[in-house]
């Protein structure tokens, strides 16, 4: 390094050299560093998530017996209700299979639910992603659907050995096929720019002109099985207003998404049963 250069000039020179080196680095090396750094920090995020679990465990430890007993009773009631619901769902499923067979309808893939903890949330203006505590080790693959009790969460964007990144439906780059409740024509849903301190939103387009939505009579936008990613009928959001598009052929509208999307702690990844490999567990 030349001796007569100032500290700043030397730094600049170094940075330029480094950038040049970066420019000529083969892409597989770059990809390699990406994987290494991603996998390297994954255990830290996972560890922090376990710490959070531990914290909530100790919080519960401090609860009174009365609280725990009443919580247990509530849970058993809920369980009983779900057992009944399960039976109803089973019989409806059988009926559905029968009708599908009767009308010769194609059957859509079934899914296995892989419940995972959320360990990191990155909800910025430019992207909205979650990192979850399960990865390739649980058979998760990019593109798989992610849901929660309130409906659609998003799609698996990338998968690491022990963690996966999920792109939320509120992310500006998210796009999915949906349909309105009681209408099976597919529409296009896109995530949107989400202003801070407010519930997330998205937009829906290519809505047929005969559909009506109003503040008094909002319509529910649900996932469409036609897209091949999500099962049918899971809530994406609610539409309170539809406006005609410029060509007069379609309508567009704002979709109000579930505010819980921003504070999710647990989600479920839908793994298509036929593609599921042996996770080796």
């Amino acid at each position: 390094m030349p001796r007569n250069l100032t500290h700043q000039a030397k730094s600049l020179l170094l940075v330029v050299l480094l950038l040049l080196l970066w420019w000529f680095t083969p892409s597989f090396v770059k990809r390699g560093t990406e994987v290494i750094f991603s996998e390297f920090q994954a255990p830290a995020w996972t560890g922090m998530s376990y710490l959070k679990d531990l914290r909530s465990y100790w919080t519960n430890w401090g609860s009174s017996k009365e609280d725990l007993i009443s919580a247990g009773m509530n849970l058993s009631r809920l369980n009983a209700a779900y057992v009944v619901r399960n039976q109803q769902v089973d019989s409806m499923e059988r009926e559905l299979r029968r009708l599908e067979g009767y009308f010769n309808l194609p059957s859509y893939p079934e899914y296995q639910y892989e419940v995972a903890r959320v360990i990191k949330r990155d909800l910025t203006a430019w992207w909205q992603v979650l990192v979850i505590r399960k990865g390739i080790n649980y058979g998760i693959e990019p593109g798989q659907a992610v849901i929660f009790s309130g409906g659609v969460v998003g799609r698996v964007q990338s998968v690491g050995a022990y963690t996966s990144t999920v792109e939320l439906i509120s992310s500006p780059h998210f796009r999915a096929a949906g349909h309105f409740e009681s209408d099976d024509r597919p529409v296009e849903f896109r995530g949107g720019i989400n202003p801070g301190l407010r519930a997330p939103t998205g937009t829906v387009s290519t809505v047929p002109v005969d559909l009506v939505a109003s503040r008094k009579d909002p319509v529910r936008l649900t996932s469409s099985k036609l897209g091949g990613i999500f099962p049918d009928g899971l809530t994406i959001g609610w539409v309170y207003n539809l406006e005609p598009s410029s060509d007069g052929l379609f309508q567009t509208g704002k979709v109000m998404l579930d505010p819980r999307l921003q504070s999710l702690r647990e989600i479920a990844v839908l793994i298509p049963i036929e593609t599921r490999g042996d996770p080796g567990r």
Binding site: K30, F37, S38, Q41
Partner: peptide, 11 residues
């Protein structure tokens, strides 16, 4: 590199 590997921006 740490920040890049978990952000959906060009690496």
């Amino acid at each position: 590199f740490f920040a890049d590997s978990v952000s959906p921006v060009p690496y």
